[in-house]
Structure formats: structure tokens, C-alpha cells
Nucleic acid binder design. Sequence first.
RNA 1: GUGGUUGUAGCUCAGUUGGUUAGAGCGCCUGAUUGUGGUUCAGGAGGUCGUCGGUUCGAGACCGAUCUUCCACCCCA
Length: 456
Amino acid sequence: MAQKPGIPKGTRDFNPEQVAKRNYIFNTIRKRFETFGFQPIETPSFENSETLMGKYGDEGDRLIFKILNSGDYLSKVNESAYKEKDSNTLTSSISEKALRYDLTVPFARYVVQHQNEIEFPFKRYQIQPVWRADRPQKGRFREFYQCDADVVGSDSLWQEVEFIQLYDSVFSSLKLEGVTIKINNRKILSGIAEVIGASDKLIDFTVALDKLDKIGEEKVKEEMRSKGILEEGINKLQPLFTLSGSFESQIESLKSILSSSEEGIKGIEELAFINEAISQLGLETATLQLDVTLARGLNYYTGAIFEVAAPKGVQMGSIGGGGRYDDLTGIFGLKNVSGVGISFGLDRIYLVLEELNLFPNTVTKNVEVLFINFGEQEALFSLKAIKLLRSEGINAELYPDTAKMKKQMNHANKRAIPFVVLVGEQEMTSDTYTLKNMTSGEQTKVSLIELIEAIR
RNA sequence: GUGGUUGUAGCUCAGUUGGUUAGAGCGCCUGAUUGUGGUUCAGGAGGUCGUCGGUUCGAGACCGAUCUUCCACCCCA
């Protein structure tokens, strides 16, 4: 047993039941994406390192899986970097490719590369695995699937409205009711930073603010102080910490806080527009909530920021996220193309559905009838019937070996196959089939027509 | 990347301050039952105690390293 094989940390095998459940989620999401007018694309598992590096911040670079060059990679190595044990410089000389870290940056690369073939606005969806060299935890893996839908080439705020509808539609289809779609706006965060005189410390400021519900008001203030934000500014934030109530009343409070910031006011207007549209259109099962502490993906989000929280009572990080990035393709040289998109975390949604017992019983498509194998003649006779059953859309199979009946019955039992058919000498001569219901134990002799009717 | 945690049969877990041959339940295999599974009864197989090294007369237990699990940071789906 010492030599038992294993798989790398943070990766998983999926058994037939798990694959069926995962496909159920994939298919539901795919169906909703297409209903909303998105078209699928796929990109390679790995990209040139320069496409990915530097796009996710220093932290992101650390979590990108690098692929070692083929061949005698050490011969081309930078001599001084090797001697100095300078990992950063050395990495770029021995690795030129890296596994994709998310689907958004490869999509931006795709848009720039194919800009002349694409009809804008372009709505694409993409369901593929991504890799992160992270430490695994519950709901955090080193290989996991993202399901992304993005629109590029439209500044319209109706897109944001559509994405909120799409989130609602997908989670409602999955019967995952009571999710909270949190929304914020980068412009509001910039506005606040401006008002408190910390525009140059926007990232530090928002990272600290983002932790409010986790570490509390005092610790957040402490972190801001340690990042060099002035006490005077922090005092101005006070109304923010106690912000609550409806979407509308929060917007009113923000208006007074941000009255001196042009950008902040713009952000408020955007949020108000989106909220107004959503209240007119309505949501099936989700709730839209303004959360000014929401600050994800600031490395490229410029407008709306989304995050989806699982229903209350389920211990799970966010099950989806997204936002508006006005200039994502700019990093690849294509200016003035705005994008906005959302992502679903398949693996986390799976864990939530499992915990809440929300997978339909029908996701695993089992064999419905097993024919017992009594010998060569009987097997051939059975396969003729099986061929007909299959043409009627019934999942049927023959036990492949002429094993003891006990073994064959046991096999049917363990696989939870609901019907077993016995065809021996008696049945062959009378052209009948002995059908056994494995749940009730009842056994009847029927014709082929009756057999089809009984199983269907 | 930092700090902590976990690993004993296919699965879930016992195993005393270091002391003969490491246990249980479930599962698995065989038979009771040669054309009948799920229940019952009888019997059986299965462990380099994560891996490597160290301390010791003696290690599943103690020490170190490493891998793995889970958790908190960091960050994030």
C-alpha cells in the first residue's frame, strides 16, 4: 500500500455520480447563458507567460503555475540570476508558458487577437478549468472550473442589469434560492478615497474596507492607519461603517458623503440606475444588495463590482463574482473597448447544492434493465431484445459473463438497476421474458412488447 | 508564501506512561441456496500504522524532514 498512487495537492478525481452532478450544473448554466444570447469560445489551457504575468498583481503572479521549458532549459539560463538564486529573473529564463489563472485575461487576449473577425458588442461565454498554485482549503482548489459570461464593446449600463438578471436566472434554475447578489462600484470607492484624501492609497484603503464584516470596524481603522491613511480621513468614514437599510437609503447617505467628488457621484448615479431597472424588472429568487465594502478585482474593474454570496447559513466563500472593466484589452494594445462580465464558481456551487441537498434525483442516468447471461444462445437472444429496447430509448445491458446467477443479481442490486430480465431455455422456446422488479421482488412472464411497456 | 492541524484494513475509527502476534463496525470474498439479489447464519481474506531518516534493548506511539488533509492569514471562485 506504500506505493499507492496519488494525485497532486488541490486536485480531485470525479466518480460517475459526481460527474453527473457537475454536468447538471454545467448544463443549467450553459442553457441560461445561451438564453441570454451568449456564445461559447474556448482558449488554450496555457498561455505565453507574458500574457498572464503582471495582470493579477504581485499576489497573482505568485499563484500562477509556470511551465518549465522543454529540452535542456538550464543551458540558456541567465548566469548571474542562477548564481544569485534570483528566482524572479531565473523563472523568466527557464519558463515561457504558464497555466491559465482565470478566463478573463485570456478572453481579453482573444478579443485583441481576433478583433477584426469579431462583431461587437461581443457576448461570449466560456466554461473551462483554471489553475492556481494556492494552498487548498474548503471550496478552494488548485484546479477548478470557472463559468464566465462577458460582453465587450458596449458601455451600456443595461449590460449590468442583464448580468444581474442572468445571475438570478441561473441560481433560480438550480433551485438555489436566497442568494445575495452584492453590488458596488469602483467609482464610489475612488470617490471615498478622494474625499478622505487617500486617492493614492486606493488599493490599501479598499482592501482594508473589504474586511469590515470579517474583522470589524476597529481593526479596519487600525489597518488603515498602518497603511498611512490620516486620522482626519478615517473620521470622515464614520457614516460608512454604520451604513445600512435599503438600497435607496444607502444611496442617499452616500450622496452626502460623496457630494464633493465628481467621480463618486457618477458611481452613485450608475448604481441608482441599475437598482431602478432591477426593481422594475424584478428578480425571481435572488436579492440585490448594495455593499460599499465590496472591493474585489480592483486590478482591472473600473465600474460595477459583483459578488454572489450563498444563502444564509451556508459556510462558503463567494460562489460568483464579476464587474465592469473599461480598459481590459488596453493591456494588449486595443483601446476604448469596454467589457463587463460575471463568473460562476462551479466547484463551490456544487458544494452548496450538496450541502442543501438540491440535486434532483434524476441527475444520474442509470441503466434501467440488466439481462442475466445464461450462455451463448441466451446471450444472443437477449441482445436482440436489448437492441430493440435501446432503439426505444431504454438504457439496457447484458451481463457480459456467464457467471453464477447470484453474482449477476448481486451486480444488478449494487448498481441499483431497477429491472432484471431472465432469458433461459424456457423463455427462449416460448419467446417470453421473465421480468423481475428489483424493488418489489415481483416476477412476471411477458412478451417483448409488454417488456418495453413495463420498463418505460 | 506564514502559522497551526491531520494521516492506522476498501470506508469510519479504537489502540493506556514506548513492551509479545495492531483491533472493532461496516464493506469485500466463500458457503448454507447448481434459475434468483436485498434479510439471516457460518467461515475467510485483507495492514512495511503516509514516506524517509533518527532516538531506544524495543517505536503505531517519541524526535526531525517530507508528502497529504483540513483550518487561520495572504489572496480568491
